[in-house]
Amino acid sequence: MRRIAILAAGLTAALSPVAATGQSMTPMRGEVRSFTDAFAVRVFPGNPYNQRIRVEVHVYDQNFEPVAARITPSAFLLAGQASRPVLVVVPFDGANERKVRICTESIPFPSEQTQIRAQICGKFFGHRRF
């Protein structure tokens, strides 16, 4: 319970962006200080289209290797011109600081020869404080 409280406090101090319609993901930059062994970021994927799309959120390290972060929710349907908050909790994995990319990906339209997958990635820097 204490850990949750600290995490929540860290989250509040970290990022409090305002979601705006039509943006694919906001914020795209962030620096977070955490007193626990993980840091949390809240991002707002947006749907710039007028129709509903499927969105996935992934976390990668600097080399685009997947990071075992807790993403809530990691995949969802998003209504046209809408955005919604996604909570990402990234473990430090023993390090004192960690740089990650949080990426919002849209699922391509099917049945075309060359599909384009749109990916918006934000860069986030977590610092661990003892």
Binding site: Q23, S24, T26, I116
Partner: peptide, 26 residues
């Protein structure tokens, strides 16, 4: 204003094959 970026896909692409059958390209 922090950096923002929105990608909207207008259309997908189409590839065709070259006459020597060694290139499949848009």
């Amino acid at each position: 204003i922090t950096a923002t970026c929105t990608i909207t896909i207008n259309s997908n692409g189409t590839m065709t094959v070259s006459s020597n059958l060694q290139s499949l390209s848009s």
